[in-house]
Every structure is written in structure tokens, then in C-alpha cells.
């Protein structure tokens, strides 16, 4: 059974259909790259999975639980349990500016009180080492570069022990010379078999790291497949046109 199953997901703002009945599965250990032009609904799709957007129809199942079934959402407490299985990384990092790097990582786990303070502290140290920022643990976000901020944001999401990581254009707000360090961290995660959905403009990353690429345009999934297949032999004109522009 697929870990995430989306069926006929629909979202509209007034008469504008942002997502038109889209369906897809994500299996454990998948790394799915979602590509497509601006305004194609990629981000809305991703944000709907963690309930940052409410859909107007369709179903989203995560493991055994439905976040939304045939357009009807679960109860708030269930929604929270389901979305906590997912980690989210934003384009603009959204670090808490009034907290240090370490406090950014530890705030939510401490408030959710599922583990001891010592466990939380150990994990934040491990994760900061993993993203290469142990020496910046006591810095405030204002004193970090964009690439460092995004690595902190990834570590913060990992603090919640998510089963899947969602990335919403994680390198789009970065200077070109800083995207490499973030992509490197994401690549490591993929090598450790983290399940990931990555909305991205980085075709290199999609080719190299993803095991599936999904091309979206105008609120629809036009096609999806293995990167070599999709990049070398796109089946649809819209995909071809998009790839030619890159």
C-alpha cells in the first residue's frame, strides 16, 4: 500500500481551479520531484498535504488515516496527528527570528512533551552536526546566510521525526552559490531513504536524486515517471515545451 495516496484532489479560489482532480501515490522511500511552470499548482498541492491549504474535494490518505476523504476533513485532533508525520521545509525558511538555532530546533519537541529534555537536546545536537551547523547552535537566524537558514529549517523539520519530508522550492530564495549546500543535505537525506516530495526548479537535483518526476501544468499532473524517461523522452507537448525552456 502506498504511504500517501491522493485521489481527485480539487482546489479552487472562486472560479479559478488551482488543482483539477489530481491523483498520485507516494511510496515509502520515494523521492518525488515535482516540476512545472509558476502557477501550475505545485506548491498548493504540497501545502494541501500538510493542511496549510484546504482542498474543495477529493481524498488524501496518509498511511492508514484519511486527512480528507471525499472532501470531508477529519477532526482537528486527527488532522494534527496525521500532519505531524510530515516535515515541511518552506521556500523562505520561516525560522523563528527571536530564537537561536538550537531553540528553533527544540521549541516544538519541548512543547509537545513527548520526550525528555535530554533526548531532545541529543537529537538537536545530532541533527545540527548532520547539516553541518553545530558551531552555529547559539546564533540567531539574522546572522546566518540563506543556505545556513535553510539547513537549520531542514534540521528543525527533522526534529519531529517525520516519516516524509515535503520541500516547497527549498532553494528558490537562495543565491545560486548557496543552493549547493542545501541540495547536498537533501541528497544525504535521500540516501538515508527518507521519503521526500520536492517541489523544485532544480532540474539537476530532479535528475540525479529523484526516483520519480511529476510534471504539473495548469493544475494538472501532465505526466510522471522515472527521471531519465521523463527528461529524455517526454510524452506530451506541454512537458516538452517546459523542458525546452529550462
Amino acid at each position: 500500500m502506498a504511504f500517501i495516496e491522493v485521489s481527485n484532489m480539487k482546489k479552487s479560489y472562486g472560479s479559478l481551479d488551482v488543482l483539477k482532480q489530481i491523483s498520485f501515490d507516494v511510496n515509502k522511500n520515494d523521492v518525488v520531484a515535482v516540476i512545472g511552470p509558476s502557477g501550475s499548482g505545485k506548491s498548493t498541492m504540497l501545502r494541501s498535504l500538510v493542511h496549510l491549504e484546504e482542498v474543495n474535494g477529493g481524498s488524501i490518505r496518509v498511511a492508514d488515516d484519511y486527512l480528507v476523504k471525499d472532501g470531508v476533513y477529519s477532526r482537528p485532533q486527527e488532522i494534527k496527528q496525521i500532519t505531524l508525520r510530515m516535515g515541511m521545509v518552506f521556500q523562505h525558511f520561516n525560522l523563528f527570528p527571536h530564537l537561536t538555532v538550537k531553540e528553533n530546533l527544540e521549541l516544538a519537541p519541548r512543547l509537545l512533551k513527548k520526550e525528555s529534555a535530554a533526548e531532545i537536546k541529543n537529537r538537536s545536537t545530532d541533527l545540527l552536526a548532520k547539516v553541518g551547523l553545530l558551531d552555529r547552535a547559539n546564533a540567531y537566524p539574522a546572522n546566518l546566510s540563506g543556505g545556513q537558514k535553510q539547513r537549520v529549517a531542514i534540521a528543525r523539520a527533522l526534529m519531529m521525526n517525520p516519516e516524509i519530508m515535503l520541500f516547497d522550492e527549498p532553494t528558490s530564495a537562495l543565491d545560486p552559490e548557496l543552493t549547493g549546500e542545501v541540495l547536498q543535505v537533501m541528497k544525504h537525506l535521500a540516501q538515508e531513504h527518507m521519503t521526500m516530495i520536492v517541489v523544485t526548479h532544480e532540474m539537476g537535483f530532479a535528475k540525479e536524486v529523484a526516483n520519480r518526476v511529476m510534471f504539473m501544468d495548469n493544475g494538472e499532473i501532465i505526466e510522471s515517471g522515472h527521471p531519465t524517461e521523463l527528461f529524455n523522452n517526454p510524452q506530451f507537448d506541454r512537458t516538452k515545451a517546459f523542458l525546452n525552456r529550462q
Binding site: 500532519t83 505531524l84 516535515g87 518552506f90 520561516n94 523563528f96 512543547l111 519531529m160
Partner: peptide
């Protein structure tokens, strides 16, 4: 305050009071 602060809090599982 940027709306991203609310979104980050939500996906990290903070309740409204927190």
C-alpha cells in the same frame, strides 16, 4: 509578522496558545 511564522508553527504541531 510574516504569515510563514504561523505556517511553520502549525506544521510543527504547536497549538494556538503555544
Amino acid at each position: 509578522i510574516d504569515k510563514g511564522q504561523y505556517e511553520a508553527s502549525q506544521v510543527l504541531g504547536l497549538n494556538k496558545w503555544q
